[in-house]
Computed example of a mutant assay.
Amino acid sequence: MADAPRLTVWYNTKCPVCDAGIDWQTNRLVRAARAGTIAFRDINLEPDALARFGADVEAVRRRLHGLDADGNLVVGADCAIALWRHTPGDSWLAALLGNRLTRPLTRIAYNRFADVLYAWNRRKGHW
């Protein structure tokens, strides 16, 4: 039996930007994904997957959501940072944007970008 993934990321495949970003990330993480280190899941296929955390499809359409190996929910910039930690060649990005001094700014920037992307997806009907 394979070990549980170190990180499971739920995202919205109906968002062209999100889907392309995860596709790009998956290609960089082929070995990790094949080894089961990281799993990517489409929230549209599992709308209740994060219900125990109070997160529904709309929450994931707004921000990446993930579960770490201990079952802790990581959302938004924190999920992206966790993903970078597991991506070969991107650990420096996690260290730079995820340290205690820069993480608050990283969260603000991520949240603003996510809000704009969410509004664009709604206007374009990417649901």
Rank of each mutant, 00 (worst) to 15 (best):
S91G: 15
L7M: 11
D48H: 00
H126S: 05
D78I: 08
W24V: 14
D3F: 15
L97S: 09
A114V: 03
N27D: 15
A51V: 07
W24A: 14
H86V: 14
N111W: 11
A114S: 00
R41S: 09
H126D: 11
A33R: 09
T8S: 04
W120Y: 10
A55T: 12
L97C: 14
A35Y: 02
A69E: 09
G36K: 15
G76H: 00
K14Q: 06
R61A: 15
P104E: 12
N99P: 09
G89W: 03
A69Y: 07
G98L: 07
P5E: 03
I43T: 06
D23Y: 15
A55H: 15
F40V: 00
D23K: 05
A39Q: 04
F40M: 07
D19C: 11
D23V: 12
G54D: 04
N121T: 02
L93E: 14
A59W: 12
P5I: 01
L29K: 11
R123V: 03
L117R: 14
A82W: 02
R61L: 11
A69T: 14
W120T: 06
A51S: 08
L29F: 13
N12A: 07
L101A: 05
A80G: 10
G66D: 01
A51D: 02
T106W: 12
L50T: 01
